[in-house]
Structures are given as C-alpha cells and as structure tokens.
C-alpha cells in the first residue's frame, strides 16, 4: 500500500509548526479522511472542524498545498503524492488550534448588510426568470474560502474597509431580488468597499459551489455603483425620467 506524507500545521495563536505524518492511501481517500487517520492513529488531539463530509456544510475549509480548499472534497489522487501534502488553517482568520480558525468576523459583517425589504403592496408572485440570478448566490455554503483567498482581506487586512466576496454575493442576491426595494449602493461604495476588489478572480477560482462570484456578483455590483456615482449620462437620464 502506498503512503502519503501529510504535513499538518499544529499550533495555536502563540505559534506552531508543521508535523509530518505517514498515511496509507486508500482508493477515493480525501484529505479529511487522511486527517481522521492521523487523529485515530497518531495524535488524537488534532483539532479539525468538519460536519457533513459531503462538501455542503462548509466547515472543513483549510489550505492544502497552499490553496484554500475543502478537505472533504479534495481527493488525494488529485495531489502530487511524490512530495508531502501540506495542510494549514485558513490564513485570513485568527487561528484557534491546529486547523480550526475563528471565522466569527464574517457573522459580524453579515449583520451590517441591510436585509430584504419589500413594498407594502407587494404581489408575492414571482417569475422564475426574475429570481434565477439570485438563486445562484444562494448556493453559497459559507465555507469562507473566498474570504480566505481574497488578498484584500488576507494580505492587506482591510477587514474594516471591505466586506469580502462572500458578502458581495449576499448583497448581490438581495440587490437583484425582484421584490427587494432597499438601495444598498451607497453602502456598497462606502462601508462594503466594493472598490477594493480588483477583479483578480481568486474568489471564483476557489469556490467549491462554482458560483461565478466575480462575473455574476461583484462586477454587476460595481456596474450598479458606476450607474449612480460615475456615469453622468445615467444621472441625466434618471433626472429626465424623474426617477
């Protein structure tokens, strides 16, 4: 039986280091299986957050060979096994222990987004064609891989200025909803900091749900902000139409 070398980051907020483990490879094995093998056979106290093991709960996010991925969705046979496989916690969020990070910042930011608001005389019948765009964004499993890979948060630590890609798709979901009447453009430009995104599309690359975060959410939001703040023609047209 062939063996994979797993270099798992062990440590906490005080510091840590990689520890290497030999894991016998079984057919169809994913990285989370390998971590569970380590837990069962070497170090029972290794901390890893997981739940569904079906790429739907978004709990087991980590950085495998330096790339943010779900450990339950990353098969060992998709990785080069001639070198050790590194498994690190998400870099963007504070480490708690080993592979577990504190992602609570995301929940705090989420509270700042104005919720769905409807008109008093709303007719609640909706056409599928009108809700399809928002439905793509509802596939999000909140694994926060996109938040982790976003260099604005990860390397520049602009957590006070930029909400991050996950929150952008939440805002897009609400903004594109056919019955929502809230205007979030000022918030998008100011508090949410959509201008900090420079479209390098890493969020889209790592999304396990394959949501087109940049093309279908962030860019359309940037265009809506441009309608209001950077397009004099649109401004004149709105004045003429009286809206």
């Amino acid at each position: 039986m062939s063996v994979a070398k797993l270099r798992i980051y062990r440590g906490d907020a005080e510091g840590g280091q990689e520890v290497e483990y030999d894991v016998p490879i079984e057919e169809g094995m994913v990285v989370l299986d390998a971590i569970h093998f380590v837990q069962a056979n070497y170090d029972g106290d290794i901390a890893v957050r997981w739940n569904c093991k079906a790429a739907k709960c978004g709990s087991c996010s980590a950085e495998i060979n330096g790339m943010p991925k779900l450990t339950c969705k990353t098969r060992l046979d998709t990785l080069p096994l001639d070198k050790p496989i590194t498994v690190h916690p998400l870099k963007t969020f504070p480490i708690m222990k080993d592979l577990v990070t504190d992602v609570s910042w995301n929940y705090e930011v989420r509270k700042k987004i104005p919720p769905f608001k409807y008109a008093k005389d709303t007719d609640w019948k909706m056409q599928q064609v009108d809700v399809e765009r928002s439905q793509e964004f509802r596939k999000c499993i909140e694994c926060y891989l996109c938040q982790d890979v976003c260099h604005v948060l990860r390397n520049h630590n602009k957590k006070n200025e930029f909400f991050g890609p996950r929150m952008m798709i939440k805002i897009a979901e609400l903004e594109m909803h056919p019955l929502d009447i809230e205007d979030r453009k000022e918030m998008l430009r100011e508090a949410a900091g959509v201008g900090y995104c420079n479209i390098t599309k890493c969020c889209t690359e790592v999304c396990p749900e394959e949501i087109h975060i940049t093309d279908n959410a962030i860019i359309p939001l940037k265009e809506r902000v441009a309608d209001t703040y950077f397009d004099p023609l649109q401004w004149v047209m709105k004045k003429i139409k009286g809206s």
């Binding site: 604005v152 390397n155 520049h156 602009k158 930029f162 900091g193 900090y196 995104c197």
Partner: peptide
C-alpha cells in the same frame, strides 16, 4: 500590507 487602495 496596508498600502493597498484597490480601485478606490
């Protein structure tokens, strides 16, 4: 880190 202003 911190010097980045993006498209703002």
């Amino acid at each position: 880190a911190g010097n980045y202003e993006g498209e703002t």
